[in-house]
Amino acid sequence: MRLSKRKAHLRKAGFKKGTASPKKGQTVAFPTVSDNKYVRLEKKAFESRVHTSNNVLTFKDTDGTDTTVSALRPRPNASNVVDEYSGCGDESLHPDVCTYKLMVQAKVQALFNSAFKKHRHDKPNCEGDLNFDAANSVRWGLRWRKRLKCTKCSYMSDYHNLYEEVENRKSPGRRAAKVNIGLQLGLWTTPISNTGVRRIFNNANIIAPNQAAMQRLSNKVNEKIQSVNIRDMHELLLKKMP
Rank of each mutant, 00 (worst) to 15 (best):
G18Y: 09
T195M: 10
V197C: 06
S79Y: 03
S114G: 11
D232T: 08
A13M: 03
W140H: 09
K146A: 07
K5C: 00
E47H: 04
S92G: 01
T67N: 10
L3Y: 06
H121Q: 01
K17D: 05
E127W: 04
R2M: 02
V50M: 13
N136A: 12
M103K: 09
K170P: 00
N210R: 04
V50W: 11
N136K: 15
E235M: 10
T190P: 03
N113Q: 08
Y85M: 13
W140Y: 08
T68F: 12
Q105S: 00
C98W: 01
L10F: 10
N194Y: 06
K101V: 14
V197A: 07
L111P: 00
F112T: 03
T32V: 13
E235D: 11
A71D: 05
E84H: 08
Y85T: 09
A110F: 00
K224I: 07
S4L: 03
E223H: 14
V228W: 13
S86P: 02
R49V: 13
D129P: 01
K23Y: 15
S86N: 08
M103P: 00
F30Y: 13
A213G: 00
Q105T: 00
R147M: 13
D232R: 12
Y155Q: 11
N219T: 09
E235K: 12
E84N: 08
P209S: 11
L142G: 12
A106H: 04
D122V: 04
A29D: 11
T65D: 08
T27S: 15
M103T: 05
I181E: 05
